[in-house]
């Protein structure tokens, strides 16, 4: 086992431990903190796979922004009253579905052959190449993505706006 494999198994174990923490934590805030662990571990795997840009994006957007958003939502919705009943009555079905899925996926992975292994000729993708592809070849999807973000932003503000504020304005 090489050093890289050792690091990979360590990070993979951290990712799975974070995922299990999300499942097992009795408190949803702790579950959100375990989620940060899992997301950071995935960023570590991105680095091992030579995708530094995506690792940075992962840390900034997932581990930073989205989990902060989750924690804010937990704060605004006061989750304390749910602690005794974290899991719904359908949880055995969910266990069966997940185990069947992971069994199916691992069987598929173990029995498949993929064409061409790029191991011998690793091309590291510099930031410039990625940016150029994004702004030239993928310019139209990129602009549509910006529209999607704008609409989501407006929609989130409209949905989460406090109606009491309207009353105050009316007065």
């Amino acid at each position: 086992m090489t050093v890289a494999q050792g690091i990979f198994y360590l990070i993979a174990a951290l990712a799975v431990a974070g995922g299990l923490g999300v499942v097992l934590a009795r408190n949803t805030v702790y579950a959100a903190l375990f989620l940060i662990l899992a997301l950071l571990a995935v960023a570590g795997i991105y680095i091992l796979l030579a995708s530094e840009f995506l690792a940075l994006v992962q840390v900034l957007i997932y581990a930073g922004a989205i989990t902060v958003l989750l924690l804010f939502a937990l704060m605004l919705t006061r989750v304390g009253d749910l602690e005794e009943t974290m899991v719904g009555a359908q949880w055995p079905l969910a266990v069966v579905a997940s185990i069947l899925l992971v069994g199916l996926l691992i069987t598929t992975i173990a029995t498949s052959d993929w064409p061409g292994d790029a191991d011998g000729m690793i091309t590291r993708i510099p930031f410039e190449t990625l940016g150029e592809a994004l702004f030239r070849q993928w310019a139209v999807p990129f602009e549509i993505a910006s529209l999607v973000l704008l609409i989501a932003l407006v929609g989130a503000i409209v949905l989460a706006r406090d109606e009491e504020g309207d009353v105050e304005e009316a007065e």
Binding site: A38, M86, Q90, W91, L93, S98
Partner: peptide, 21 residues
Amino acid sequence: VGAVLFAIGLYVALSKRNAVA
């Protein structure tokens, strides 16, 4: 690793009662 994470996420999405979870 991806498959295991996906299955864990599926279980969380199907079983938790808190919408944020």
